[in-house]
Design a protein around this nucleic acid. Sequence first.
DNA 1: CTTATGATAACCTAACAGGC
DNA 2: GCCTGTTAGGTTATCATAAG
Length: 368
Amino acid sequence: MLDVQVDEFTLVLQTTKKPYSIETWSGMAHALINEFTRLSNIELVLGELEDSTDSLPRGYSHGLSCKDKPYYFSVAYHTDFIQMGVCIKFSAYAWMKYREQFEKLFNQPVQIHQLISNIDNTNLYTSRLSRIDIAIDYIDEDISVNTIYNQLSKKNQIVKTASGRNNLSSLSALTKNNETSTFYLGTKGKNIKALLRVYDKKKEQTETMGSRFKEALQYSNWVRFEAVFKGEYAHNISDELKSIKKDVELKNLLVSALTDRYQFYYTKSNRLTTYSKSMLNLLDKKTFMFSSPSPRMNLLEQSQQHILNGSGLFPYLFKIRHIWGEKGLKECVAFLNEEFNNYEPNDDVMLWLKKYSAMYTQQGYPFK
DNA sequence: CTTATGATAACCTAACAGGC
DNA sequence: GCCTGTTAGGTTATCATAAG
Protein backbone atom coordinates (compact mmCIF):
# COMPACT_ATOMS: atom_id res chain seq x y z
CA MET A 1 0.00 0.00 0.00
CA LEU A 2 1.19 3.49 -0.79
CA ASP A 3 0.17 6.48 1.26
CA VAL A 4 0.73 10.14 0.36
CA GLN A 5 0.63 12.95 2.82
CA VAL A 6 1.91 16.30 3.96
CA ASP A 7 4.31 15.80 6.82
CA GLU A 8 5.38 19.06 8.43
CA PHE A 9 5.18 22.56 7.03
CA THR A 10 5.90 26.20 7.79
CA LEU A 11 3.70 29.07 6.67
CA VAL A 12 4.73 32.72 6.56
CA LEU A 13 2.22 35.53 6.75
CA GLN A 14 3.18 38.93 5.32
CA THR A 15 1.26 42.06 6.22
CA THR A 16 -0.53 43.85 3.42
CA LYS A 17 -0.58 47.21 5.21
CA LYS A 18 1.75 49.63 3.49
CA PRO A 19 3.40 51.80 6.16
CA TYR A 20 6.18 49.44 7.15
CA SER A 21 7.45 50.97 10.35
CA ILE A 22 9.32 49.09 12.98
CA GLU A 23 7.42 50.77 15.84
CA THR A 24 4.03 49.56 14.72
CA TRP A 25 5.19 46.11 13.67
CA SER A 26 4.66 44.34 17.02
CA GLY A 27 1.05 45.43 17.20
CA MET A 28 0.55 44.51 13.59
CA ALA A 29 2.08 41.08 14.11
CA HIS A 30 -0.33 40.46 16.97
CA ALA A 31 -3.23 41.49 14.77
CA LEU A 32 -2.08 39.01 12.12
CA ILE A 33 -1.74 36.27 14.71
CA ASN A 34 -5.23 36.95 16.07
CA GLU A 35 -6.69 36.86 12.60
CA PHE A 36 -4.89 33.61 11.84
CA THR A 37 -5.96 31.90 15.05
CA ARG A 38 -9.55 33.00 14.45
CA LEU A 39 -9.66 31.76 10.85
CA SER A 40 -7.91 28.47 11.58
CA ASN A 41 -9.75 27.82 14.87
CA ILE A 42 -6.37 26.76 16.11
CA GLU A 43 -7.05 27.13 19.84
CA LEU A 44 -10.28 25.17 19.65
CA VAL A 45 -8.62 22.41 17.69
CA LEU A 46 -5.08 22.16 19.08
CA GLY A 47 -5.44 23.80 22.48
CA GLU A 48 -4.73 27.13 24.07
CA LEU A 49 -1.75 29.12 22.90
CA GLU A 50 0.52 30.71 25.45
CA ASP A 51 3.20 33.35 25.26
CA SER A 52 6.41 31.58 24.74
CA THR A 53 10.06 32.46 24.53
CA ASP A 54 11.81 29.12 24.80
CA SER A 55 10.02 27.03 22.21
CA LEU A 56 9.79 29.32 19.21
CA PRO A 57 11.15 28.55 15.76
CA ARG A 58 14.81 29.52 15.83
CA GLY A 59 15.51 33.04 14.72
CA TYR A 60 12.18 34.43 15.92
CA SER A 61 11.97 36.55 19.05
CA HIS A 62 8.31 36.58 20.10
CA GLY A 63 5.40 34.28 19.75
CA LEU A 64 2.96 31.73 21.02
CA SER A 65 3.01 27.98 21.23
CA CYS A 66 0.95 25.08 22.48
CA LYS A 67 2.31 24.30 25.90
CA ASP A 68 2.20 20.97 27.65
CA LYS A 69 1.24 19.13 24.50
CA PRO A 70 3.10 16.21 22.98
CA TYR A 71 3.10 17.98 19.62
CA TYR A 72 4.87 21.12 18.49
CA PHE A 73 2.93 24.05 17.14
CA SER A 74 4.10 27.64 17.20
CA VAL A 75 3.27 31.08 15.81
CA ALA A 76 6.06 33.65 15.94
CA TYR A 77 7.50 36.90 14.66
CA HIS A 78 10.67 38.89 15.10
CA THR A 79 10.38 42.40 16.56
CA ASP A 80 13.15 43.82 14.35
CA PHE A 81 12.50 42.08 11.05
CA ILE A 82 9.24 42.77 9.32
CA GLN A 83 10.36 40.87 6.25
CA MET A 84 10.50 37.65 8.27
CA GLY A 85 6.75 37.97 8.68
CA VAL A 86 4.71 35.81 11.00
CA CYS A 87 5.95 32.23 11.00
CA ILE A 88 3.53 29.37 11.59
CA LYS A 89 5.08 26.02 12.24
CA PHE A 90 3.17 22.76 12.23
CA SER A 91 5.18 19.70 13.19
CA ALA A 92 4.10 16.46 11.54
CA TYR A 93 2.46 15.31 14.75
CA ALA A 94 0.68 18.64 15.29
CA TRP A 95 -0.68 18.58 11.75
CA MET A 96 -1.94 15.02 12.22
CA LYS A 97 -3.64 16.04 15.48
CA TYR A 98 -5.10 19.16 13.88
CA ARG A 99 -6.70 17.09 11.15
CA GLU A 100 -8.06 14.50 13.61
CA GLN A 101 -9.50 17.06 16.02
CA PHE A 102 -10.86 19.26 13.26
CA GLU A 103 -12.81 16.39 11.79
CA LYS A 104 -14.19 15.44 15.20
CA LEU A 105 -15.28 19.00 15.96
CA PHE A 106 -16.60 20.13 12.61
CA ASN A 107 -17.65 16.82 11.16
CA GLN A 108 -15.61 17.36 8.03
CA PRO A 109 -12.05 16.50 7.09
CA VAL A 110 -9.46 19.16 6.48
CA GLN A 111 -6.43 19.06 4.20
CA ILE A 112 -3.71 21.63 3.71
CA HIS A 113 -5.43 23.38 0.80
CA GLN A 114 -8.55 23.88 2.94
CA LEU A 115 -6.49 25.23 5.80
CA ILE A 116 -4.78 27.70 3.48
CA SER A 117 -8.03 28.77 1.88
CA ASN A 118 -9.57 29.23 5.36
CA ILE A 119 -6.75 31.36 6.68
CA ASP A 120 -6.51 33.41 3.47
CA ASN A 121 -10.02 34.70 3.94
CA THR A 122 -8.75 38.09 5.09
CA ASN A 123 -7.12 41.20 3.71
CA LEU A 124 -4.76 41.72 6.64
CA TYR A 125 -2.07 39.46 5.25
CA THR A 126 -0.93 37.21 2.43
CA SER A 127 0.32 33.73 3.16
CA ARG A 128 2.73 31.31 1.58
CA LEU A 129 4.67 28.21 2.52
CA SER A 130 8.34 28.54 3.34
CA ARG A 131 8.76 24.82 3.84
CA ILE A 132 6.75 21.72 3.13
CA ASP A 133 7.66 18.08 3.61
CA ILE A 134 5.90 15.59 1.38
CA ALA A 135 5.91 11.95 2.44
CA ILE A 136 5.09 8.86 0.42
CA ASP A 137 4.93 5.75 2.54
CA TYR A 138 5.45 2.25 1.20
CA ILE A 139 3.67 -0.01 3.65
CA ASP A 140 4.19 -3.76 3.38
CA GLU A 141 5.60 -3.31 -0.10
CA ASP A 142 8.86 -5.07 0.77
CA ILE A 143 11.09 -2.20 -0.17
CA SER A 144 14.58 -2.11 1.29
CA VAL A 145 16.32 1.17 1.98
CA ASN A 146 19.63 -0.65 2.16
CA THR A 147 19.18 -2.21 -1.29
CA ILE A 148 18.17 1.05 -2.94
CA TYR A 149 21.08 2.86 -1.38
CA ASN A 150 23.56 0.22 -2.50
CA GLN A 151 22.19 0.33 -6.03
CA LEU A 152 22.49 4.10 -6.09
CA SER A 153 26.01 4.18 -4.72
CA LYS A 154 27.12 1.57 -7.26
CA LYS A 155 25.42 3.64 -9.97
CA ASN A 156 23.25 0.68 -10.90
CA GLN A 157 20.36 3.01 -10.34
CA ILE A 158 20.23 6.73 -11.01
CA VAL A 159 17.85 9.52 -10.16
CA LYS A 160 16.27 11.71 -12.80
CA THR A 161 13.92 14.64 -12.84
CA ALA A 162 10.53 14.45 -14.53
CA SER A 163 11.97 16.18 -17.58
CA GLY A 164 14.52 13.40 -17.94
CA ARG A 165 17.63 15.19 -16.68
CA ASN A 166 19.89 13.54 -14.19
CA ASN A 167 19.37 14.69 -10.65
CA LEU A 168 22.93 15.42 -9.53
CA SER A 169 22.17 15.78 -5.85
CA SER A 170 24.83 14.29 -3.64
CA LEU A 171 24.11 10.99 -1.96
CA SER A 172 24.80 10.35 1.72
CA ALA A 173 23.67 7.77 4.22
CA LEU A 174 23.43 6.62 7.78
CA THR A 175 24.93 3.16 7.88
CA LYS A 176 25.33 0.92 10.90
CA ASN A 177 26.78 -2.60 10.80
CA ASN A 178 26.84 -2.42 7.03
CA GLU A 179 23.09 -1.78 6.93
CA THR A 180 21.77 1.54 5.64
CA SER A 181 18.55 2.62 7.30
CA THR A 182 18.44 6.19 5.95
CA PHE A 183 19.85 7.91 2.91
CA TYR A 184 19.71 11.46 1.62
CA LEU A 185 19.76 12.94 -1.84
CA GLY A 186 20.98 16.51 -1.54
CA THR A 187 22.85 18.20 1.25
CA LYS A 188 21.36 19.23 4.54
CA GLY A 189 22.98 22.65 4.51
CA LYS A 190 21.02 25.85 4.70
CA ASN A 191 19.48 27.61 1.72
CA ILE A 192 18.84 24.28 0.11
CA LYS A 193 15.68 24.20 -1.93
CA ALA A 194 15.14 20.45 -2.10
CA LEU A 195 16.22 17.36 -0.21
CA LEU A 196 15.02 13.77 -0.28
CA ARG A 197 15.23 11.53 2.75
CA VAL A 198 14.47 7.85 2.39
CA TYR A 199 14.28 5.83 5.58
CA ASP A 200 12.99 2.81 7.37
CA LYS A 201 9.96 4.22 9.17
CA LYS A 202 9.26 1.02 11.03
CA LYS A 203 12.75 1.00 12.47
CA GLU A 204 12.54 4.68 13.38
CA GLN A 205 9.18 4.35 15.13
CA THR A 206 10.10 1.23 17.06
CA GLU A 207 13.49 2.55 18.12
CA THR A 208 12.27 5.97 19.18
CA MET A 209 8.83 4.87 20.44
CA GLY A 210 7.46 7.55 18.13
CA SER A 211 3.89 8.79 17.88
CA ARG A 212 3.00 6.12 15.36
CA PHE A 213 4.71 3.28 17.24
CA LYS A 214 1.66 1.05 17.57
CA GLU A 215 0.83 1.43 13.92
CA ALA A 216 4.39 0.54 12.97
CA LEU A 217 4.19 -2.77 14.82
CA GLN A 218 1.30 -3.89 12.63
CA TYR A 219 3.36 -3.61 9.48
CA SER A 220 6.11 -5.95 8.49
CA ASN A 221 7.73 -3.29 6.35
CA TRP A 222 7.38 0.49 6.22
CA VAL A 223 9.63 2.74 4.13
CA ARG A 224 9.17 6.46 3.72
CA PHE A 225 10.24 8.75 0.86
CA GLU A 226 10.21 12.22 2.31
CA ALA A 227 10.96 15.30 0.22
CA VAL A 228 11.71 18.60 1.92
CA PHE A 229 10.99 21.64 -0.25
CA LYS A 230 12.05 25.09 0.86
CA GLY A 231 12.53 28.57 -0.56
CA GLU A 232 11.28 29.07 -4.08
CA TYR A 233 10.11 25.47 -4.36
CA ALA A 234 7.88 25.85 -1.32
CA HIS A 235 6.53 29.08 -2.83
CA ASN A 236 5.75 27.24 -6.09
CA ILE A 237 3.81 24.57 -4.21
CA SER A 238 1.98 27.25 -2.25
CA ASP A 239 0.78 28.96 -5.42
CA GLU A 240 -0.47 25.67 -6.77
CA LEU A 241 -2.23 24.73 -3.53
CA LYS A 242 -4.35 27.87 -3.82
CA SER A 243 -5.94 26.63 -7.01
CA ILE A 244 -6.88 23.26 -5.56
CA LYS A 245 -10.34 22.21 -4.45
CA LYS A 246 -10.46 18.44 -4.18
CA ASP A 247 -8.41 15.91 -2.24
CA VAL A 248 -7.58 14.02 -5.40
CA GLU A 249 -6.02 17.19 -6.82
CA LEU A 250 -3.96 17.51 -3.67
CA LYS A 251 -2.71 13.97 -4.07
CA ASN A 252 -1.78 14.70 -7.68
CA LEU A 253 0.08 17.82 -6.64
CA LEU A 254 2.04 16.10 -3.87
CA VAL A 255 3.04 13.15 -6.01
CA SER A 256 3.85 15.42 -8.97
CA ALA A 257 6.10 17.57 -6.81
CA LEU A 258 8.05 14.65 -5.40
CA THR A 259 8.40 12.86 -8.72
CA ASP A 260 9.25 16.09 -10.53
CA ARG A 261 12.62 15.97 -8.80
CA TYR A 262 13.07 12.30 -7.89
CA GLN A 263 12.52 9.40 -10.24
CA PHE A 264 14.62 6.28 -9.86
CA TYR A 265 15.87 4.48 -12.98
CA TYR A 266 17.87 1.33 -13.67
CA THR A 267 21.02 2.62 -15.31
CA LYS A 268 21.52 -0.15 -17.84
CA SER A 269 18.02 -0.51 -19.22
CA ASN A 270 17.12 3.12 -18.61
CA ARG A 271 13.80 1.98 -17.23
CA LEU A 272 11.90 3.19 -14.21
CA THR A 273 12.40 1.10 -11.12
CA THR A 274 9.34 -0.74 -9.90
CA TYR A 275 8.98 1.39 -6.79
CA SER A 276 9.22 4.63 -8.76
CA LYS A 277 6.67 3.26 -11.16
CA SER A 278 4.22 2.53 -8.37
CA MET A 279 4.73 6.06 -7.13
CA LEU A 280 3.88 7.46 -10.56
CA ASN A 281 0.90 5.14 -10.79
CA LEU A 282 -0.68 7.13 -7.99
CA LEU A 283 -1.12 9.97 -10.46
CA ASP A 284 -4.23 10.43 -12.50
CA LYS A 285 -2.33 13.12 -14.27
CA LYS A 286 0.75 15.16 -13.69
CA THR A 287 -0.33 18.55 -12.51
CA PHE A 288 2.73 20.32 -11.32
CA MET A 289 6.30 21.25 -12.16
CA PHE A 290 8.76 23.41 -10.30
CA SER A 291 9.82 26.54 -12.05
CA SER A 292 13.37 27.80 -11.83
CA PRO A 293 14.34 30.63 -14.12
CA SER A 294 17.88 30.81 -15.39
CA PRO A 295 20.08 33.13 -13.33
CA ARG A 296 22.62 33.57 -16.11
CA MET A 297 21.50 36.80 -17.78
CA ASN A 298 22.91 39.04 -15.12
CA LEU A 299 23.37 42.61 -16.20
CA LEU A 300 26.41 44.61 -15.15
CA GLU A 301 24.32 46.91 -12.97
CA GLN A 302 23.08 43.89 -11.07
CA SER A 303 26.55 42.46 -10.56
CA GLN A 304 27.84 45.85 -9.47
CA GLN A 305 25.06 46.20 -6.95
CA HIS A 306 25.87 42.80 -5.57
CA ILE A 307 29.58 43.59 -5.23
CA LEU A 308 28.87 46.86 -3.43
CA ASN A 309 26.19 45.44 -1.23
CA GLY A 310 26.05 41.83 -0.21
CA SER A 311 29.11 40.22 -1.75
CA GLY A 312 31.29 40.70 1.29
CA LEU A 313 33.92 42.78 -0.51
CA PHE A 314 33.52 45.78 1.78
CA PRO A 315 33.40 43.73 5.00
CA TYR A 316 36.60 42.06 3.75
CA LEU A 317 38.35 45.37 3.01
CA PHE A 318 37.18 46.80 6.31
CA LYS A 319 38.68 43.91 8.26
CA ILE A 320 41.97 44.28 6.39
CA ARG A 321 42.15 48.00 7.09
CA HIS A 322 41.17 47.53 10.73
CA ILE A 323 43.96 45.03 11.29
CA TRP A 324 46.74 46.38 9.07
CA GLY A 325 45.78 50.00 8.49
CA GLU A 326 45.92 51.99 5.26
CA LYS A 327 49.21 50.37 4.26
CA GLY A 328 47.72 46.88 4.53
CA LEU A 329 44.69 48.00 2.59
CA LYS A 330 46.87 49.37 -0.18
CA GLU A 331 48.79 46.11 -0.44
CA CYS A 332 45.56 44.20 -0.40
CA VAL A 333 44.16 46.16 -3.32
CA ALA A 334 47.45 45.67 -5.20
CA PHE A 335 47.15 41.95 -4.51
CA LEU A 336 43.61 41.87 -5.89
CA ASN A 337 44.77 43.71 -8.98
CA GLU A 338 47.58 41.21 -9.49
CA GLU A 339 45.22 38.28 -9.03
CA PHE A 340 42.84 39.78 -11.54
CA ASN A 341 45.63 39.91 -14.12
CA ASN A 342 45.92 36.13 -13.79
CA TYR A 343 42.20 35.54 -14.14
CA GLU A 344 41.09 33.29 -16.97
CA PRO A 345 37.50 33.81 -18.05
CA ASN A 346 35.39 30.70 -18.58
CA ASP A 347 32.99 29.93 -21.41
CA ASP A 348 30.07 31.50 -19.65
CA VAL A 349 31.88 34.81 -19.34
CA MET A 350 32.89 34.84 -23.02
CA LEU A 351 29.37 34.00 -24.03
CA TRP A 352 28.01 36.84 -21.95
CA LEU A 353 30.47 39.25 -23.62
CA LYS A 354 29.39 38.18 -27.06
CA LYS A 355 25.85 38.94 -26.19
CA TYR A 356 26.12 42.18 -24.25
CA SER A 357 29.35 43.95 -25.38
CA ALA A 358 27.67 45.94 -28.12
CA MET A 359 24.84 47.02 -25.91
CA TYR A 360 27.15 48.28 -23.20
CA THR A 361 29.58 50.15 -25.45
CA GLN A 362 26.60 52.07 -26.71
CA GLN A 363 25.03 52.52 -23.32
CA GLY A 364 28.17 53.59 -21.42
CA TYR A 365 29.52 52.70 -18.00
CA PRO A 366 27.27 51.11 -15.40
CA PHE A 367 29.12 53.21 -12.79
CA LYS A 368 29.49 56.97 -12.62
C1' DC B 1 31.55 33.04 27.62
C1' DT B 2 31.78 31.65 22.88
C1' DT B 3 30.15 29.27 18.97
C1' DA B 4 26.94 27.01 16.08
C1' DT B 5 22.44 26.85 14.40
C1' DG B 6 18.47 27.93 12.13
C1' DA B 7 14.81 31.00 10.57
C1' DT B 8 14.33 35.01 6.98
C1' DA B 9 16.00 37.74 2.76
C1' DA B 10 18.70 38.52 -2.02
C1' DC B 11 21.93 37.11 -5.36
C1' DC B 12 26.06 35.21 -7.70
C1' DT B 13 29.01 31.53 -10.04
C1' DA B 14 30.88 26.97 -11.25
C1' DA B 15 29.80 22.91 -13.08
C1' DC B 16 27.11 19.92 -15.31
C1' DA B 17 23.64 18.46 -18.90
C1' DG B 18 21.70 18.27 -23.26
C1' DG B 19 19.95 19.75 -27.96
C1' DC B 20 21.41 20.84 -32.45
C1' DG C 1 31.45 23.71 -30.61
C1' DC C 2 27.80 26.76 -29.55
C1' DC C 3 24.00 27.93 -27.00
C1' DT C 4 20.62 27.33 -23.40
C1' DG C 5 18.87 25.38 -19.19
C1' DT C 6 19.43 23.73 -14.38
C1' DT C 7 21.17 23.19 -9.85
C1' DA C 8 24.22 22.97 -5.82
C1' DG C 9 26.48 25.66 -2.98
C1' DG C 10 28.47 29.80 -1.69
C1' DT C 11 28.34 35.01 0.09
C1' DT C 12 26.09 38.79 2.88
C1' DA C 13 22.76 40.55 6.75
C1' DT C 14 19.92 39.89 11.38
C1' DC C 15 18.85 37.82 16.08
C1' DA C 16 17.99 34.56 19.92
C1' DT C 17 18.99 30.59 21.97
C1' DA C 18 20.90 26.02 22.60
C1' DA C 19 25.01 23.56 23.01
C1' DG C 20 29.72 23.11 24.34
